[in-house]
Amino acid sequence: MDLRQLKYFVQIAESGNFSRAAEVLRIAQPSLSQQMKNLEEELGVELLMRHARGVTPSQLGQQFYDHARRILEEVDRVKDQVRSKSLNPSGRVSVGLPTSACRGLGLPLISAMAEHQPNIALHVVEAMTGYLDDFLQAGRLDVALLYDHKAFEHVAWTEMMVEELMLFVAPDHPLAARGSVSFRDMFAWPIVLPGAPNVMRTVIEQFAARNDVEPVAMACDSLPTIARLVRSGRALGVMPHFAFMDEMARGEMVAVSILDPTPSWRLSVVVSQRSMNPRGSEAVAKVMANVIAEMVETGTWRAKLKAEKARATVK
């Protein structure tokens, strides 16, 4: 017995005629008759009483009809619920944001999720990108925004954009008036970077190795502390423009371009394929991609979008 046979039986009982039921079901009448014969043989009872005007359910057939209707109705309800959840994802989704991006992206992302996906409970985790990558692999995150992330199994990613790194100095620092400095010359001043194996330090060290530069820099994994060091003039910080927008707006820091070469990194929206809520994770990733694209297009976030990734590209 299968759902198709239940559907056929219910239609025959309601039509009272094999030929009318066959028309509704768009099936050949001999095939429909054979399906009902197989069903009756399997159950060992006569479900339909044949007569000159058509067919009517037997006493047992009427009981079977009532059960079959309830089963088919329940199947339809389940289908509707699944379709509804696919169109309107719900549940908890954990999303990881790098420390350098969380302050600027956190509020717009939460606001956009409240507007477009109100049924999803968002759990935002802020950490250095190396930790976020590990959290994603360990199944502690569903979605993350990562810089130059490692290519592991069980994740899908959409590369969103390329972001240049800049040197941040106190307003009274000599470089503040110059507006730019060469990659080699910036190490003449004390530099603070996140500690290894942070992606920021890896990027700077790779650029240094290619350009025969010794990248001497103190290590600090706290963005607020890095900000305090830069504001005090004790060190210069390397970060994307987006990381210290508030400090620059208050006149506490100045962003200086790094030239010859200009270090940069790629940002990707990464989705775990092990998520317990794949629909919700995909929805969050898509909203995040759109929020980032809008911020870049309006100039709030200084970066270069991948041309084909501008809007709602996360699958």
Rank of each mutant, 00 (worst) to 15 (best):
L259P: 00
H149P: 14
S222T: 06
E126D: 11
M218L: 07
V82M: 10
L47C: 05
W301C: 02
D133V: 01
R178V: 13
R103Y: 04
R231S: 13
H241I: 08
E159T: 14
D2T: 11
P57L: 01
G44C: 05
P57T: 15
R201G: 02
L32C: 09
K304S: 13
E205D: 15
A310Y: 01
Q59E: 14
Q34A: 12
I120C: 05
A196C: 01
A156V: 12
V143I: 12
L39T: 11
V291K: 02
E46A: 04
G195D: 15
R92Q: 12
S19C: 00
L229D: 09
V254L: 03
I226M: 13
K7W: 07
K286M: 07
M295Y: 01
R69E: 11
G54R: 03
E297D: 12
I258F: 09
S182I: 04
L25H: 07
A310S: 10
S222Q: 10
M295G: 03
S94L: 01
L32G: 12
S275C: 02
R311D: 08
Q137H: 05
K79T: 10
L47W: 10
A217S: 15
G96A: 03
E247T: 03
Q137I: 06
S182P: 10
P240H: 03
P190I: 00
V55M: 05
E153T: 14
P174H: 03
D142E: 12
A121S: 13
A289I: 00
P197L: 01
D142R: 07
Q273V: 01
D260R: 09
G179F: 04
E308I: 04
L223D: 08
E205W: 06
N290W: 00
T298R: 13
A310K: 15
A285Q: 10
L146H: 08
F168R: 03
N88P: 02
E214V: 14
K150A: 11
D172T: 12
R266Q: 13
A293Q: 08
N119V: 00
A101R: 01
P174N: 04
V192E: 03
Q62C: 00
M186L: 15
M166V: 09
S264A: 11
A312T: 09
H67N: 11
W301D: 06
L97M: 07
D134I: 09
F183R: 08
M113S: 06
L6G: 08
G61C: 06
Y131D: 13
G91S: 08
I27S: 04
L236G: 05
Q63N: 15
S111I: 03
N211F: 03
R92A: 07
T56M: 08
E42N: 04
A144P: 07
L32N: 12
L175A: 11
N277F: 02
M276K: 10
F244H: 08
L146I: 06
E23A: 06
R69N: 07
E163L: 01
G61V: 09
L175F: 11
V296F: 02
R70D: 14
L60K: 15
T158I: 05
K37N: 11
S180E: 15
W157R: 11
T56K: 13
F9D: 07
L107Y: 03
W157K: 09
L47Q: 08
V199R: 10
G251P: 10
E41L: 05
F152P: 00
S94H: 05
L60M: 12
F187S: 02
Y147D: 09
W301F: 11
M245K: 12
D212V: 04
V82C: 01
K286Q: 14
A249Q: 14
Q137R: 14
R210L: 10
A312H: 07
